Computed example of a mutant assay.
Amino acid sequence: MSTEEFARRVGASDRMVSEWEARKDTIRLRQVNQAALATLLAGSAPDVHERFASLARSLGTVIPTQETPSPGPQSQQHQVRHPCDGKKMALVAAGTFLCGEKNEPVWPTSFYIDVFPVTNNDCARFVAATGHEPPQHWHRGKCPEVTLDHPVVFVTWHDASAYAAWAGKGLPTSPQWEKAARGTRGDTYPWGNNATPAKGNSRESGIGSTTPVSRYHRGVSPYGVYDFCGDTREWCSTRSEPGRYELKAGAWTSPFARATPAVFNDASMEMLDDDTGFRCVTPATVMAMLLAG
């Protein structure tokens, strides 16, 4: 690729890349640049790995004899139950991933994220424990049995934050949410780069409502997390401007083109609708202490 394209992929300036080339083995890269280069290499084809190994050997560099595998669904999955609300959470390890529509390298620390969005059943336990106002679409303050395993909707950012605080968690930042959805290599969708509306509940599904959170098995992310491309939009903790916060994912009301995890969206923190919900995160360090007792 060109110097300009290479610089964009690793989040550096054209001038910096030219300086790397000029200084060769005297250069000392910052950790974030090393991580971005390692991420690009991990996602490259086998012939690129072999060319890299050949060049490294020609420079007398000692390299591992076993090729580093590309991230995959099975190799990245590690799940536990949060001891406070009992929900399954998946580990997203620290490291660089390609973020946003420009695929810029970003380095979040390790965290756990809910495998499924917060459901009506989860919210019912929260309401019973705290006396929080139930969602407006529940009949007489109770959710219908048929939608207990659907994502909760008609929740403001304040409602989502209140649940997260009760559960001993937090709302994800926009980069945390996106990394859990896309993996590290800059894939367009949780499952790769092929546009496949059937792998999520968007407007094209024709269902016309939310669906059970565990329905779309073929649409899971590399970390085994569900519903990142449809069903509901999800609140994040990232503020876009005063009184407004980012939303991620498309929804059952959205066209599939708007379900791409990198797409920017935001709303007033007071907004509540029939296609907006949330999920929670916990720092890996906090989870370790909770599980230890």
Rank of each mutant, 00 (worst) to 15 (best):
Y189V: 05
N194W: 03
A267D: 10
G72T: 03
T276F: 02
R244E: 09
L171H: 08
P69S: 10
P255R: 09
P255D: 13
F52D: 00
E101V: 04
A124G: 08
G170Y: 01
Q66S: 15
Q31L: 14
R182K: 15
H78I: 03
R125Y: 03
E270A: 13
C84F: 07
Q34N: 13
H139R: 07
W107K: 07
R279N: 03
P144R: 10
R182M: 05
P117L: 08
A249S: 14
S237W: 09
T39R: 06
H132P: 00
T109D: 15
I113K: 02
S209A: 13
R30Q: 13
A45Q: 11
M16C: 00
G131C: 12
F256Q: 04
A45T: 10
P197S: 08
G277L: 02
F278K: 02
R182L: 06
S2M: 02
E101R: 04
S70R: 09
G43I: 00
S254I: 03
R51D: 06
L291I: 06
K169R: 15
G170L: 07
R215P: 00
C123L: 15
H82G: 01
E101G: 04
H150F: 13
R239N: 01
M89T: 08
A162K: 07
Y216L: 03
R51K: 08
G250S: 07
T39I: 04
E204R: 14
A56N: 10
E178K: 06
A180V: 06
G186W: 04
I63F: 10
V62E: 12
T210K: 01
R51Q: 12
R125I: 05
G11N: 11
H78D: 07
W166R: 01
P222H: 08
G72D: 09
K24Q: 13
E133G: 01
D25M: 10
A267R: 09
H78K: 13
P46C: 11
G206K: 12
P242V: 05
P71C: 01
E19M: 14
T282A: 03
G293H: 01
G243D: 14
S110F: 05
N193P: 11
H139S: 14
W138S: 11
V118M: 14
G11C: 11
R185L: 13
A7I: 05
